[in-house]
Design a protein around this nucleic acid. Sequence first.
DNA 1: CCACTTCATATAGCAACGCTATAGGTGCTA
DNA 2: TAGCACCTATAGCGTTGCTATATGAAGTGG
Lengths: 240, 240
Amino acid sequence: MSFDDQLPPKIRLLRAAAELLANSEGSAVSTRQITKLAGVTAPTLYHHFGDKEGLFDAVVSAGFEEYVAGERDFAPSGEPLEDVRRMWDNHVQFGLSQPHLYLVMFGNIRPESRPAIVADAEALLEEMLNKAAIAGQINVPPREAARSILAANVGVTLMLIAEPVEERNLELSTMTRDSMVFAVSTETARGAAAEDSGKSSVVVAAIALNAALQASHSDQLSSSELKLFLEWLHRISSSS
Amino acid sequence: MSFDDQLPPKIRLLRAAAELLANSEGSAVSTRQITKLAGVTAPTLYHHFGDKEGLFDAVVSAGFEEYVAGERDFAPSGEPLEDVRRMWDNHVQFGLSQPHLYLVMFGNIRPESRPAIVADAEALLEEMLNKAAIAGQINVPPREAARSILAANVGVTLMLIAEPVEERNLELSTMTRDSMVFAVSTETARGAAAEDSGKSSVVVAAIALNAALQASHSDQLSSSELKLFLEWLHRISSSS
DNA sequence: CCACTTCATATAGCAACGCTATAGGTGCTA
DNA sequence: TAGCACCTATAGCGTTGCTATATGAAGTGG
């Protein structure tokens, strides 16, 4: 019951809270569960942490410090924007591996209780984007870029957490990540105009696809599939 | 005390909950406050709404319906991507004008209680992006684009809510918005210099055709042919 | 006109919650 | 040994979400 004896109660409380937060499936975690698992009584909790949220903040800080530490060890790949992408993935991974902790951190933030964690995460991203800026790789001030990317990162992570585990599609994350990094970077010639594709009917689209397919030798379909596919395309596109 | 007499209790509960949610500064809203303000007793609430979350969902739905209604009246500007931007701004505006409602909707979503609202918002965006796809303006399937944009939109809105009102900088929103729309659109010659220029036009054409086909119920193909055709289209358009 | 069901609301209260007033125990310093 | 912090426990307050049960009103079939 009191799982970890002879450690100081403060640490036992932290561990008990972390364990319950990590394992509780959606339902809230009560102070009574925590104190029971830690083998202490209620006043001990309030003596050390002030209130329930104080305990959770402490747990979150510990978890986040750990995550940030692993982040820093592993950061410099030479390509700052690649590092930004990896920080994004790490953020998502952190949220998915400890969803309840994550929701405590980012899901319930309000103006009057904005956790320092958000600022920390922002600073970490900004630091990396600063390197990219020095290398002339971004076209937006690093602070704004960091805030923007972090916001999108949080949104994606929350969406993924909200999805049933078996339906989670990490492509949402990589796609949004690349969109954000791309939009912020100077990697591309943004001003160049594309071909005018103003027409919008089925026929026009089918003709365009038909031409494009024949020109590019797509290997997504086998040759027999392609033949039938093109025949159908022809039927569609010749039906005005 | 019971502020709106002679209305049905169900509606009085909805209004009381909405008012308390809108005015409560961060602190939680209790069922007792709600029922007292509505002038009814507890079982009435549970008879009509099941539980507290059911009430909140109903309030949120009502508020969201209102927001969606104003959205639809005002939508077709002829330029789908511009409409997407305006939907983004409306989303942010909704979150900032009713932050507690918004947090109930998007801040606490968990796998087992994912509100239908998220799906609704996604569908609304997807509908608009579908128009863009038909016009050949996006290079990503509309559903994925909608999920991605919505995720970023939610993240930005939560970040803005978390900031003190006087520090709120809407530039975070416009910048992230434009980044997402830009990354998804074909407005630019993204791949022109890269190796995949031919393939990317196939992808764009396939996406446009897919959207157009589903919108127009073409009868050029039988339903079984259409099914297979769409599956191939999906394979082409989801190849990266 | 009366039983009968159905729906909607109220009385009263349970178990669990976050939290605290108060007191007792422990180890240190004088 | 006395005094003093510090830490922890006993016991319980007020509030929470929710419900077992009962009562009233409204319609329906005989």
